[in-house]
């Protein structure tokens, strides 16, 4: 028992020494796109930890010790929500024992700020890895990103009132640049309108809806179920016959299934960044959108 008491004492001492007053708000971001948005909205007023990279599948991240340590120190957690992180974020929050981010103002879920597409009318895992909250891959819809930016900026201002003016000014600046970029992207993407694509996972519905493209097939037989050769074989005819523009996959996805289908159909397989950092060009949200459109346009012969 003595040992236990001294351990606790040691712990308390460590608290006293290890937590000096820091001015910056500490933010834990689950995905790179929200990390990039935080950089736009907060700049050097925020210390941002991004949990995952564009080369990782955010559906199935491990609740690593390093992530628990980061959540432990966070003032705010910014994640996608809609159950995208259901396999790991609840574990991080519980193990970190950080009441600030467990609920309330310290927990910002992007999906709660917008309406999602593809909300399933029937919840049955026989249909694959369905998300009751709808499709959570909305980082490729510029309008939704703008709504999220405004809500996030307001949240930052509420948690860190001292820098509220900065957040407001940075949001205004971002809104101006983003609103100007949208029509530019739409004009650039005009040749993509009405074109068909085959996707790896159903992660592109917001992009295709925005640009007026059509998703005619998915390499995964059901969402979250790895592609099988039998299922891929059924896609050959569809892909060939429907004047398909491209077979698209995210940077983190296994390239083999898309390559297989590409070889048999002559339709190019295109790797899109999917989030900031997904390719060499995607350094921030703007260049991420630019790169995505460039790569899709590059598939037009």
């Amino acid at each position: 028992m003595n040992r236990l008491t001294s351990l606790c004492m040691l712990a308390l001492c460590a608290v006293a020494f290890a937590s000096p007053a820091r001015a910056n708000l500490k933010v834990f971001s689950c995905e790179p796109e929200w990390g990039a948005l935080l950089a736009e909205l907060g700049g050097d007023k925020l210390d941002v930890d991004v949990a995952t990279s564009a080369l990782q599948d955010v559906h199935v991240i491990e609740a690593k010790p390093s992530l628990i340590a980061k959540v432990r120190r966070a003032d705010l957690v910014v994640c996608t929500g809609a159950d995208l992180e259901v396999g790991w974020l609840p574990q991080l929050v519980r193990q970190s024992g950080n009441p600030k981010i467990a609920s309330g103002d310290g927990s910002f879920m992007a999906a709660d700020q917008i309406s999602t597409l593809e909300k399933p009318s029937q919840l049955d895992r026989a249909n694959g890895d369905v998300h009751p909250g709808g499709n959570p891959h909305f980082q490729m819809d510029p309008q939704r990103v703008l709504v999220i930016a405004k809500a996030l900026s307001a949240r930052l201002a509420r948690l860190d009132a001292g820098n509220a003016a900065t957040y407001q000014q940075r949001l205004a600046d971002f809104t101006t640049r983003w609103s100007a970029a949208i029509p530019r992207w739409e004009a650039k993407a005009a040749p993509l309108k009405g074109r068909n694509v085959v996707v790896h996972h159903n992660s592109w519905i917001y992009l295709t809806t925005w640009l007026g493209m059509h998703e005619i097939g998915s390499l995964e037989p059901k969402p979250g179920v790895p592609p099988t050769s039998a299922h891929l074989a059924t896609l050959v005819d569809t892909t060939k016959s429907q004047n398909t523009l491209a077979i698209i996959r995210a940077a983190y996805q296994d390239p083999k299934p898309a390559d297989w289908l590409s070889e048999r159909t002559g339709v190019p397989a295109v790797t899109l960044p999917f989030t900031v950092g997904g390719d060499a060009q995607s350094k921030d949200l703007f260049s991420f959108y630019d790169s995505t459109l460039d790569k899709l346009l590059g598939a037009i012969k």
């Binding site: 609920s103 103002d105 927990s107 879920m109 709660d112």
Partner: peptide, 10 residues
């Protein structure tokens, strides 16, 4: 901007 931002996300 959504009006609901003023409400807690919960």
């Amino acid at each position: 901007p959504l009006a609901q931002e003023s409400a807690p996300p919960v």
